[in-house]
């Protein structure tokens, strides 16, 4: 039973991180119908920024929790700036181009950012300080659910709730939903669609950066390539849940997290990705629009 619970919470943690990244994919897709392949790189840049900030602050002997918070804030701001700029450089000029063009541009941006970090930093794995503190009250259950996992799950949950409230009740949130449904009409009733798109990229990037900081300080090492696999997994989660749907992305991410965790625990860690992608194939066969996605009805 303990083993099961350990895997359960491990999967929940994994799923939470996937969810943070998957939200960026799904929100951007919902608004500009673009798969932002550079999104994983934004997550990686978030982790790197946090590492740099953390190293500097550790040198000055700042308290770990303060480091974690400061590093997260700087990472979020820095990654948002990257997300914003990537959109302006690589996607905005192609907004009215055929759909394949921004997709290629996104892949290009992804490769560019990876290599840029590779050259600017290093190709080696870098150790990341374990910034998440051990809580005393978690000690009795720490063998199945660690403090770090708790922090990740709770942070993710708070971020999701805030995001949902934001989209549901604020003006900008309404403008986002309107833009997702009908861009021309949104323009015509006075919504500055460019700003809404920028805001979407900024929010998506912030969440990814947060995910990057959390997972890096949980796992303890990063390199320039972590964005690629995390990006693919989060993208899978978004498709699994129905791309464009926000609750879908979270659900997809959790299912993916659990699938991987249980597959690793009960079968073999070699099969982790096999199970994850087999699940994706199955869902796409039986529910092509994803779990919560609406099948598109084409009007003729």
């Amino acid at each position: 039973m303990d083993y099961f619970l350990e895997l359960f919470f491990g999967g929940l943690t994994r799923g939470s991180i996937y969810a943070l990244i998957a939200l960026g994919y799904t929100m951007v897709y919902g608004i500009v119908q673009l798969i932002n392949f550079a999104h994983g790189e934004i997550y990686m840049i978030g982790a790197f920024t946090a590492l740099i900030v953390a190293s500097v602050l550790t040198f000055y002997g700042v308290n770990t929790v303060a480091i974690l918070i400061l590093a997260s804030i700087v990472a979020v701001i820095y990654s948002s700036a990257y997300g914003f700029t990537v959109e302006k450089i690589a996607y905005k000029p192609l907004r009215n181009a055929p759909r394949l063009s921004p997709l290629i541009s996104a892949i290009g941006m992804s490769i560019f950012l990876q290599n840029y970090v590779l050259l600017a930093q290093t190709s080696d794995f870098l150790p990341f300080p374990r910034l998440i503190p051990q809580f005393h009250f978690m000690e009795p259950v720490s063998h199945i659910f660690s403090s770090a996992e708790l922090v990740i799950v709770v942070t993710t949950m708070v971020a999701m709730v805030l995001l949902t409230l934001f989209i549901k009740f604020t003006n900008l949130g309404k403008a986002m939903r309107a833009t997702a449904q009908d861009k021309t009409m949104a323009l015509l009733i006075g919504i500055d669609v460019d700003r809404v798109i920028s805001a979407t990229f900024i929010i998506g990037s912030s969440l990814a950066a947060l995910g990057g900081v959390l997972i890096a300080s949980h796992i303890g090492q990063i390199n320039f390539y972590i964005g690629f696999i995390a990006g693919i997994k989060a993208f899978t989660a978004a498709v699994l849940g129905g791309i464009g749907s926000i609750p879908g992305a979270v659900l997809g991410a959790l299912i993916l997290g659990w699938t991987e965790s249980f597959a690793t625990g009960y079968v073999s860690s070699d099969y982790e990705d096999v199970f994850a992608f087999a699940l994706l194939v199955l869902i796409l066969i039986f529910r092509p629009a994803g779990l919560l996605g609406k099948a598109e009805t084409k009007k003729v």
Partner: peptide, 30 residues
Amino acid sequence: RLFQNMTVLENAMIGKHCRLNAKILGALFR
């Protein structure tokens, strides 16, 4: 061309959007 998945009031509120001054920070921190 209504925003089909939004409520009646929300549709009207969207129209008001361009007359509001609230910026992104205001929207976030309410």
